[in-house]
Nucleic acid binder design. Structure first.
Lengths: 149, 149
DNA sequence: GGCTGCGTTGAGACTCAGTCTCACTTGTGG
DNA sequence: CCACAAGTGAGACTGAGTCTCAACGCAGCC
């Protein structure tokens, strides 16, 4: 999800400069497993001695969010997290144990949105759907408790 | 939405003390039109000289959220807002111009969630849906520009 | 390959939401 | 009416995110 080259390419085609710090941030994001917070990237950058400033990380995330290369999630805890993803409209299922996320498409939701618009009289311009639960791997692990490391 | 007595009653039946500050916060919430932020309540409380501390407002909001008398929204801007509402699972349409919110029920969404669970293998425990757009009144106002004050 | 201009950057100050502490107050059950 | 636990307010604290500004380094041009 959100691999290094696709992020860099997205920046390039959008006319942004391909600077060293941006490449570093892209690499950090590509290395994240599930969702991640800005603070985590800052910590990782420091750990790897990348010399990328806090401000730059926030700015880069903002740019990438605009480009759709990264999407912002609002976790139930109130934290803002990000996931690297394909630049198309979609939603996410988030594993509340391991943080893994999967993309889900709009499909059935479109009808729901249209229905709400009809019933309430609102013109619905935008929507956000987030599902939280346990991913298959964590479900397995929960089913066979002390078997695995 | 979220009127004074229903908030106070909710506190009461849940075994919380009915203190003066909590009544004040309930009144503030009952007077809010659309969604509101904690910061707005703090400002209002100060304006009305209610002598309710910041900490108390945050604490009361937390309690009320637990009780379901208030629900937290994540606005697209990243702000955390609240809406007073009935304590049952549901979602909201939010007017991005005036901040008005309406509740929408689960209906069609349940099928979507079940479908996602089946396709991804996740066990979905919780979900959040938020719709943003223009409410009927704001739509009208947009259609007939300079006619109204 | 070197120059140049402007987009980008890093440090750190700043703001603002939200939390925590702790001594004081106040509902409530007896 | 009293005692005591629950609740409160002031203000310190934390941590996310923004802003500023001088310095830097891409990218296009010669």
């Amino acid at each position: 999800m959100g691999d290094l080259t696709s992020i860099v390419t997205a920046l390039d085609v959008a006319g942004y400069r391909l600077t060293e710090p941006r490449r570093s941030v892209a690499a950090l994001i590509a290395d994240q497993d599930g969702h991640f917070t800005a603070a985590e990237l800052v910590r990782d950058a420091r750990a790897r001695q990348l010399g990328v400033g806090r401000a730059t990380i926030f700015r880069t995330l903002e740019v990438l969010e605009d480009l759709g290369a990264v999407e912002r999630l609002d976790l139930p805890s109130g934290e803002h997290a990000y996931v690297g993803c394909e630049p198309a409209h979609h939603h996410h299922v988030v594993c509340s144990r391991c943080g893994r996320t999967d993309e889900i498409d709009d499909e059935g939701l479109r009808a729901v949105v249209a229905d709400v618009a009809r019933r309430t009289g609102y013109r619905v311009d935008d929507h956000r759907l987030e599902l939280f639960g346990l991913c298959p791997a964590c479900l397995d692990r929960a089913a066979t408790p002390a078997t695995t490391a």
